[in-house]
């Protein structure tokens, strides 16, 4: 939680971090409809990659394939699901268990060597030590999402996938969520998250992936996306994103 939420994204001149996540040629079909069409991506250690795109673009499908929940019809993903942390869009927690009990249960299921120490560490990381004995159902949406993310981190994987983590959170809760996520990235975790909030992507992402109709249209920094549509000055990434989609016929 120590990261400054207003911190600038990684300088583009910085050396490329070691890749910890790679996916090549991912294809997924649901009947006649192609949800993903040959998508390839990678993420390096400590890198924060955001996947943006209109509704139905295939963002959630991409993340569930990266997480190993859904098998692709073609393509490959590395590493395997046990080595990737996954945080679903809706908190996947047991409402009638306390914060600590949820963490303890999943720590044991993850076969952590020292479950109690892991729970303590996660409580400290989420800043929810004082709420450890509260049932999850009594927590605010933001705090639930923190526990949700903490469970995704229990296995101490080097990659964390988050599916629209800030959806349904108020601005204050979003702020606290980003503090948390940036702290993880700073600590070396590769974070790949999907979002509808383009401003957040512009503000925090090292790289954005633009997905539309299952096709990966762009990979690069937010600044490069602006450049791709000839945007200059103070206009935001959202305008550049919309213009980019228009230019590509979406």
């Amino acid at each position: 939680m120590a990261a400054d939420p207003t911190a600038a994204t990684r300088p583009e001149s910085a050396p490329a971090p070691a890749r910890v996540l790679e996916a090549e040629g991912l294809v997924k079909r649901y009947g006649e409809r192609e949800a993903l069409r040959g998508v390839s991506l990678s993420a390096g250690r400590g890198e924060l990659v955001t996947v943006i795109g209109p509704n139905g673009a295939g963002k959630t499908t991409l993340l569930t394939i990266l997480a190993g929940i859904v098998a692709p019809d073609a393509g490959r993903v590395s590493p395997g699901p046990r080595e990737v942390g996954w945080v679903p869009q809706q908190p996947a927690l047991y409402g009638k268990l306390t914060v600590a009990e949820n963490l303890r249960l999943f720590a044991r299921l993850e076969r952590c060597s020292e479950p109690e120490a892991t729970v303590e560490r996660m409580l400290a990381l989420t800043g929810l030590g004082d709420r450890a004995g509260d049932q999850v159902v009594k927590l605010s949406g933001g705090n639930r999402q923190r526990v949700n993310i903490a469970i995704g981190l229990l296995g101490q994987q080097s990659v964390l996938l988050l599916d629209e983590p800030s959806a349904s959170l108020d601005p204050r809760q979003r702020e606290r969520l980003w503090e948390f996520v940036l702290g993880l990235a700073e600590a070396g975790t590769a974070v790949v998250l999907s979002t509808h909030n383009i401003q957040e992507a512009e503000r925090h992402a090292d790289r954005v992936l633009v997905l539309a109709d299952g096709e990966l249209l762009f990979t690069g920094s937010p600044r490069r996306l602006k450049e791709a549509v000839g945007q200059e000055g103070d206009e935001g990434l959202e305008e550049a994103f919309v213009a980019f989609l228009h230019a590509r016929g979406h």
Binding site: G68, I69, R82, W86, P88, P91, A92, G95, F106, L109
Partner: peptide
């Protein structure tokens, strides 16, 4: 209902 199913079957159980 608690959305825990997919988390569980992702290699945990």
């Amino acid at each position: 209902e608690e959305n825990a199913f997919l988390r569980l079957v992702r290699g945990l159980v």
